[in-house]
Amino acid sequence: MGHEAAKTNRLRDETFKAKYFSGHVLDIGCGTDPVVPAAMPFDLEQGDANRILDYLAPDSFDCVHSSHCLEHMHNAQAALMQWWALVKPGGFLVLVVPDEDLYEQGHWPSLFNPDHKATFRLDKPSSWSPVSHDLGQLVGALPGCETVEIDRQDRGYDHSYLHLPRNRMMRHWQKALRWCFRKWNKDLYRPGPRPRWTGPWLVRFNRWLEVPIDQTRGPAVAQIQVILRKKSAD
Rank of each mutant, 00 (worst) to 15 (best):
A6V: 15
K7D: 05
R12H: 09
D13F: 04
E14T: 00
F16D: 15
A18L: 01
K19P: 00
H24P: 00
D27F: 08
I28T: 08
C30D: 05
G31F: 06
T32P: 03
A39H: 05
P41V: 04
P41Q: 04
P41R: 14
L44E: 04
E45C: 02
G47F: 13
D54A: 07
Y55S: 08
P58T: 13
S60F: 01
S60K: 07
H65M: 08
H65P: 03
S66N: 12
S67M: 11
H72P: 01
H72R: 04
M73H: 06
H74R: 13
H74D: 10
N75S: 06
A76C: 09
L80W: 05
L80P: 06
A85Q: 15
V87G: 06
K88H: 08
G90N: 03
L93P: 05
V94I: 14
P98D: 09
L102D: 13
E104P: 00
E104M: 12
Q105T: 01
W108C: 11
S110Q: 09
L111G: 04
F112H: 12
F112M: 10
N113H: 10
P114I: 02
P114W: 07
A118S: 15
T119H: 14
T119L: 10
R121A: 05
D123R: 09
S126W: 03
S129I: 08
S129D: 15
V131G: 11
S132G: 01
S132N: 05
D134F: 00
D134G: 11
L135N: 02
Q137S: 12
G144Q: 14
E146M: 04
T147P: 07
Q153A: 01
Q153Y: 08
Q153L: 15
D154S: 12
D154N: 02
D154L: 03
R155H: 05
D158L: 14
D158Y: 05
D158T: 05
H159D: 06
S160K: 09
L164R: 15
M169W: 12
K175L: 10
A176W: 08
L177Y: 03
L177E: 09
L177Q: 12
R178T: 13
W179E: 13
R182W: 02
R182V: 09
K183R: 15
K183M: 12
K183H: 03
W184E: 06
N185R: 14
R194A: 07
W197A: 02
G199E: 13
L202P: 00
F205Y: 15
R207I: 08
R207E: 07
R207K: 12
L209P: 13
L209W: 14
I213K: 02
R217M: 07
G218C: 02
P219T: 09
P219S: 07
V221Q: 05
Q225K: 03
Q225Y: 00
L228D: 03
K230L: 12
D234M: 09
